[in-house]
């Protein structure tokens, strides 16, 4: 009885403690996230800086309609989803595989050096890397020179609607896989070594250890990252594409953000930008919540 009461009191105390722990962070979010969210109303206005949020005209859904009234809106949307979708897929698979490969390397100094090197490209901006990529695929660049030894005629990769998307996806994965693998390496350290010992006792090969110990151990992290990455399904990477595309590949490479940028060249369009941001958030939220529900249902794992 006595014990039950102390437990109850403890339970109540810890509730308060939890709230107190949440408080500072929530205050920051209140001021710097929730308050500015009032700006979302701009999505339903024709916002003019000189008139302010209160004085600008209400236009209902006109900003959203605008996006779908563009003659190429379906093409732009498709380009965005295809490029962003494949990026999400490979930006999950490649870092995971790389983390696993690196985990197999048992020479510690090599492991560390490699890790430091692969995370480098992440710190170079696309302005810089675009030049590197474009040079790589030049008529007289390494790729074409290599292909020529097999008798292939030089290909104008960056001006080809067949190649533009794969190059965008590939170079993005290349830039980010090292940095992306950090999270999985950290997850690997969390796996109980006892499990490996037990598996070895059972005579499991390295391959089956991988399948039955390592992967299940990483699965929560992988699921979480996938769910979070899904929110980017409408963000195909403005900086990258903007620095590498050209009018020839508009049909496969023009994405929402590059299009909105060009609309903005005629005078900043804050309302359109807000509307598209809102649309992206809604789609992202839907996908992320579905992912969470699906993982609860099928893997019995709650991500959030």
């Amino acid at each position: 009885m006595q014990l039950a009461r102390t437990q109850k009191k403890q339970h109540k105390d810890s509730q308060l403690m939890y709230h107190l722990m949440m408080l500072p962070g929530m205050l920051f979010l209140l001021v710097f996230s929730f308050v500015p969210m009032a700006g979302i109303v701009m999505a339903f206005q024709n916002y003019i800086p000189a008139k302010g949020i209160l004085g600008s005209d209400w236009v209902g859904l006109a900003n959203f309609k605008y996006m779908f009234q563009i003659p190429d809106s379906m093409q732009i949307l498709a380009n965005t989803v295809i490029i962003a979708g494949w990026k999400i897929v490979f930006n999950t698979i490649v870092p995971v595989v790389f983390a696993l490969l690196l985990n197999e390397i048992r020479v510690n100094w090599a492991k560390r050096t490699i890790q430091t090197v692969v995370y480098l490209p992440n710190f170079l901006s696309w302005v810089v890397l675009a030049t590197v990529v474009i040079n790589l695929f030049d008529y007289h660049g390494p790729v074409n020179t290599f292909l020529q030894t097999f008798g292939v005629k030089p290909i104008l990769f960056m001006g080809s609607n067949d190649w533009f998307r794969p190059i965008m996806i590939g170079s993005d994965v290349w830039k980010g896989f090292g940095y992306g693998s950090i999270i999985y390496l950290a997850a690997l350290t969390g796996i109980d070594p006892g499990l490996y010992e037990a598996a070895e006792m059972d005579g499991a090969s390295r391959w089956s250890q991988l399948l039955h110990v390592t992967l299940p151990g990483m699965l929560p992290t992988i699921m979480m990252m996938t769910a979070l990455n899904l929110t980017n399904i409408l963000n195909a990477g403005f900086d990258q594409i903007f620095n590498m595309y050209n009018p020839i590949v508009y049909q496969t490479g023009d994405i929402i953000d590059t299009y909105v940028y060009r609309v903005g060249l005629l005078g900043q369009q804050y309302s359109l930008g807000t509307a598209i941001g809102l649309l992206k958030s809604l789609v992202g939220a839907t996908l992320m919540i579905s992912a969470n529900e699906a993982s609860k249902k099928f893997a019995n794992m709650q991500i959030f």
């Binding site: 605008y66 190429d72 001006g159 009018p247 020839i248 508009y250 023009d254 005078g267 369009q269």
Partner: peptide, 28 residues
């Protein structure tokens, strides 16, 4: 300057214009 409709439609017209110019000149 720019007109009201330009705000709505100019970016798209520009896109067609850029692509057409470049594709014709480069013989695509």
């Amino acid at each position: 300057g720019q007109t009201a409709t330009m705000k709505q439609k100019w970016a798209n017209l520009n896109k067609m214009e850029d692509a057409t110019f470049l594709k014709i000149v480069t013989n695509q």
